[in-house]
Amino acid sequence: MKRTVPLIITFLGGVVLIIAYFIPYTQAWGEKAAVFFDVLAAIAFVLGGGNLLKNHLKKVSDRVAGWGYSVICLVAFLVTLTVGLGKIGVNPNTQFSNYAWSGVYDQVGSPFWWLYEYGFKPLTATMFAILAFYVASAAFRAFRAKNFEAILLLGTAFIILLGRTYAGVVLTGFIPDDSAFSGLKLENFTVYIMQVFNTAGNRAIMIGIALGVASTSLKVLLGVDRSYLGSGGD
């Protein structure tokens, strides 16, 4: 029973979405199914929030390694939740001035805006910026001319790295724009590599992925692959 009901729901959901694609009359059914998912995911937020609290409170109480971070996480979570949901410090919308909560939650100058502007924004930008360091480290460590294919890859990498900056323009600036060899100018050659070789490779991978997605979906819909509901075919 614990397996059968989810399998039936999966099958029905999948069939409805497929039918909705081909039969215009049922188009709205597909949208309804998507809305059902959104509702479920929204309810799951509560579950997630509760789990977050439980997990970090446990870490603090057990004094596990790094429990101080858990304290910071809990404080940040609760403060953001309170000022965001409560619209603290938000002025009412001018059109509905009688309603205290009619303003937008991230109004400029409000505590939530402040948290966003001076907390969230620089922190996420920092995490993204860390990529530059990791890319350099990975390139230094992993990019080796071990065989012919790797040498081709390295050559292409150099062309793209140079062609995507002014260095490419300078290095091959001696080739006239209107000559038969203008395609070899690094900035043009980069675009050619990206649009032809890279696109061809990507398309091959994407075709494989699309077939894999279709096949996996079919297995899940037909109940052939039930491992996501627990291991084995029982």
Binding site: A136, F140, R141, F143, R144, R164, Y166
Partner: peptide, 15 residues
Amino acid sequence: LIAHVLMILLIITGN
């Protein structure tokens, strides 16, 4: 530009 040149130098050094 400078970061890309550094990447190239790092790859060459690694090799």
